[in-house]
Amino acid sequence: MAAEASPFNIHPMDQFVIKPLFGNGDILWYTPTNATLWMGIAVVAVVVLLVLGTRGRAIIPSRSQSIAEEIYSFVRKMTEDIAGKEGLKYFPYIMTLFMFIVLANVLGLIPMSFTTTSHIAVTATMAMAVFVTVTIIGFWKNGMKFLSLFWISSAPLVLRPILAIIEIISYFVRPVSHSIRLAGNMMAGHAVIKVFAGFAGALGIGAVAPIVAIMAVYGLELLVTVIQAYVFTILTVVYLNDALHPAH
């Protein structure tokens, strides 16, 4: 890097490059990559948090067990509050999404790590999975009545076709905003930290301001990672509620 002419050889996007774990070959669909590694670490983190943490099964919980119980109760309560008792059937899926996203996000904040959720490929897959599943559930549970989601009976009759068009467009835009919101937040935060880190490298010893800025942004990012995981999950539950109870 030192060979480059510009003092600001900052490459904030390099951290998002996918690389194979072994060798330098092409990346085929099954090639283990850095994304594989960090998804695997997320799985390990799930096991540590929710399985090892609760192995005591104590009536009076240990610290790790309290954390697991808190996360469980938090997501479960959110599901029940928004989607009702019928929504609890889908709680394991919601919990799966939440655990993966929150852990991938937070693990991505470890220096030199790779943030799997900063990739549209990942978030869009999850968002599409949610979209397709929720749409199928909607038609399966309610039949053609599911379309009443788009036909707002409380609006004046003249407005209803117009509103229906808007509702349908907004329905199909859901997975786009759902996925880009998460990936965009992750990517932007990490890129900003990397840019400040580049400034710090360029300034050398006197890089107080960039380092302070990195600390500040890092704290903010920690907040954002958890909030975005929460937002993704709560939107999933809201969509699920629309499918279960389409009438406005």
Partner: peptide
């Protein structure tokens, strides 16, 4: 394709564990 494949694997494993 790579990311989607490994994501699917990850989510299935997490789902089974949970």
């Amino acid at each position: 394709a790579n990311q989607i494949f490994w994501l699917a694997v990850t989510l299935v494993i997490i789902y089974l564990i949970l």
